[in-house]
Amino acid sequence: MSRESDVEAQQSHGSSACSQPHGSVTQSQGSSSQSQGISSSSTSTMPNSSQSSHSSSGTLSSLETVSTQELYSIPEDQEPEDQEPEEPTPAPWARLWALQDGFANLECVNDNYWFGRDKSCEYCFDEPLLKRTDKYRTYSKKHFRIFREVGPKNSYIAYIEDHSGNGTFVNTELVGKGKRRPLNNNSEIALSLSRNKVFVFFDLTVDDQSVYPKALRDEYIMSKTLGSGACGEVKLAFERKTCKKVAIKIISKRKFAIGSAREADPALNVETEIEILKKLNHPCIIKIKNFFDAEDYYIVLELMEGGELFDKVVGNKRLKEATCKLYFYQMLLAVQYLHENGIIHRDLKPENVLLSSQEEDCLIKITDFGHSKILGETSLMRTLCGTPTYLAPEVLVSVGTAGYNRAVDCWSLGVILFICLSGYPPFSEHRTQVSLKDQITSGKYNFIPEVWAEVSEKALDLVKKLLVVDPKARFTTEEALRHPWLQDEDMKRKFQDLLSEENESTALPQVL
């Protein structure tokens, strides 16, 4: 008996699950189920560990084997000379395990699969056993689809999209007709009724959600790893209520002995410091949205989908001078704002400069500016000194954290500008005749005249004003913003236009 009217009423009120309206889709043409990776026989039982391990490696599972009696060998002398080797079968990115008779397991190899009674669906509900069930008529011709799209860092995100009359449910929550939600590992998919569980979705590319604290899981769906560094790992996640993407940084307390840091400095109150950081608001710094204190720290951040500045300059790639100017102007505005709010970044580098898009002209935002507030000064500097390429001379020669101030950030900005303009770092371990530390503390950077011949004198002058060993003589952010190279009204107008595109209400910060 159909429950279409009941569920449609529920759909009209929406769902609290991570779902959002989605535009129309072009329906895929039908194809045989076997060619799409559906096993030839149905099963109602969950797999054992041996079955799972075989399939996850990209080899055929026991459900897909063919009797050897149906095959015969071709003698080598009868092999056609022009026969080309077969292409290897792509490894599946996800697996659906059937929970009921009449449904088959599915190895997801393609990027898009339609499910329903219509014969054009890649996964067609046409098993005779299924057709005899009382629920068969409640399934729509095109009930739902599972697909994946390219996300940040060229990774993939799996989604389920509801197109049914009676509802598609993920972990008992209604997706909603015309809406989608991301699928995470071990999600249970039910059709027409929330208790009519048909599939379990296994994402073969992500970790299980159960490793994360419950308070975090209640608000966010964790997904793929976006990156990792000395101070922690960053994962893509989704807000459950809105389906908006965020980035979540995970900082290990054990790695940084944060408990010991608190004992050594009783004034170090991470929760208080995070609340201060959350109040920071500038178009060129990453917004801190939320914070969870569990076995590790979880910092929920605004997501930038254009990648890191590092990706644009790695491998001796240089940027156009006009692009360097647009990016560097924004970096200076961001660091100036942090300094005005009493925050020294201490870890400025291309990896911590994020881009809003893949376009050459785009907004940038500074991230990882609050680590000293979370990890403690000593722990952070011990970590950073392991990779000193961007560290100021006074940091390398000081004991502990004494003896330096916000000028350290201006040195790091000078190193970043040098790399963007030239395509190579000013200080490098590859210069074996002088140690990296000695290069930095003496201010002897690697200047290649033929490379810098293409760079304007004004740009080079600003680099020199920032890479000054004496912090008292080094340019401040205010002085850098007043430098002739940055007195470019076309560049500032472009920045204002980019801000307006992102948010019509965002105004250009005042600069002296």
Rank of each mutant, 00 (worst) to 15 (best):
S2P: 13
R3H: 07
R3G: 13
R3P: 11
R3D: 11
E4K: 05
E4S: 06
S5M: 08
S5D: 09
V7I: 14
E8K: 08
E8I: 12
A9I: 06
Q11D: 05
S12Q: 15
S12M: 13
G14C: 10
S15N: 05
S16K: 03
A17F: 05
C18H: 10
C18D: 13
Q20T: 08
Q20S: 07
G23T: 04
G23M: 14
S24A: 13
S24G: 10
V25L: 10
T26P: 14
T26A: 07
T26D: 10
Q27L: 10
Q27N: 13
Q29L: 09
Q29W: 09
G30R: 05
G30L: 06
S32C: 12
S33K: 11
S33T: 07
Q34A: 07
Q34L: 08
Q34K: 06
Q34F: 10
I38G: 07
I38N: 06
I38S: 08
I38K: 08
S40A: 10
S40T: 08
S41V: 10
S42Y: 09
S42N: 04
S44G: 07
T45D: 08
P47C: 03
P47K: 03
P47S: 10
N48C: 11
N48V: 05
N48Q: 09
N48S: 11
S49Y: 12
S53L: 10
S56A: 09
S57V: 09
G58C: 04
L60I: 04
S61G: 01
L63F: 13
L71P: 13
L71W: 15
I74C: 13
P75F: 14
Q78N: 14
E81M: 10
D82A: 12
Q83N: 04
Q83G: 07
E86P: 03
T89V: 06
P90C: 08
A91L: 09
A91P: 11
A91V: 10
A91W: 15
P92A: 15
P92K: 14
P92D: 04
R95A: 02
W97M: 13
W97A: 07
Q100K: 10
Q100R: 14
D101S: 12
A104G: 14
N105L: 10
L106R: 15
W114P: 00
W114E: 12
W114L: 08
R117L: 00
R117C: 01
D118N: 11
K119A: 05
C121N: 06
C121P: 02
Y123D: 03
F125C: 02
F125R: 00
E127P: 13
E127Y: 10
L129F: 06
L130A: 08
K131D: 06
R132C: 12
D134W: 14
D134A: 09
Y136H: 04
Y136S: 03
T138K: 07
T138L: 03
T138A: 06
T138W: 05
T138F: 13
S140Y: 01
K141W: 01
H143S: 03
F144M: 13
R145F: 13
E149D: 06
G151V: 15
Y156I: 05
Y156Q: 01
Y156P: 06
Y156N: 10
I157H: 07
Y159W: 15
Y159K: 08
E161T: 15
D162K: 01
H163P: 12
S164I: 02
G165P: 00
N166R: 03
N166V: 03
N166W: 15
G167A: 04
T168V: 05
T168G: 01
T168H: 10
F169M: 08
V170C: 06
V170M: 12
V170G: 00
N171C: 11
N171W: 03
N171A: 14
T172Y: 13
T172M: 12
E173D: 12
L174W: 12
G176W: 03
G178E: 12
K179D: 05
R180H: 14
P182H: 10
N184G: 06
N186S: 08
I189M: 05
A190L: 00
A190S: 06
A190E: 15
A190N: 15
L193T: 03
K197W: 01
F201W: 15
L204C: 03
T205S: 04
D207G: 12
D207E: 10
D208S: 01
Q209W: 14
P213A: 03
P213R: 02
P213F: 13
K214I: 08
K214T: 04
K214M: 06
L216D: 01
R217A: 00
D218M: 03
D218R: 03
D218I: 08
Y220E: 02
I221K: 02
K224Q: 03
T225C: 01
L226Y: 08
G229M: 01
A230G: 09
G232I: 00
E233K: 13
V234L: 03
V234T: 07
E239A: 04
E239L: 00
R240M: 08
K241T: 10
K241R: 03
T242I: 05
C243E: 10
K244A: 11
K245R: 09
V246S: 06
V246N: 07
A247L: 01
A247S: 03
I248A: 02
K249W: 04
I250L: 12
K253L: 05
R254P: 01
F256D: 15
A257L: 04
I258S: 04
G259Q: 15
G259P: 05
G259R: 10
A267Q: 08
L268K: 12
L268W: 11
N269L: 11
E271G: 11
T272W: 03
